[in-house]
Amino acid sequence: MIDFLRNILGKEAPRSKNIAKERLQLVLVHDRANISPHLLEDLKEDLIRVITNYMEIDENALEVQLNNDDQSVALVANIPVIKMKRDYQDLRA
């Protein structure tokens, strides 16, 4: 969009180093996710710790994965809830 406006306004196109930087940043998200098989396991454990403060979940059925496509990387989690915690008190209330 910004590029589009720039073109309309007759400003120069983005310099190639900016394109290089953007492409690198995206490709490294993929690369870094690929080379650390322990990352998802660690992330899972952390997620469980945080979520069980609020609700009871089925830890064994919990699924976390990184979905890659050409344009983006998404963290997708499927977390079956068994029940909400009754004793949760909203401390901010």
């Binding site: 310099r15 180093k17 900016n18």
Partner: peptide, 16 residues
């Protein structure tokens, strides 16, 4: 090339 924006500069690479 860095000056005219056609090569990543030092900050870019350190940043990444």
């Amino acid at each position: 090339m860095v000056k005219r924006g056609d090569m990543m500069n030092i900050d870019d690479m350190i940043d990444i």
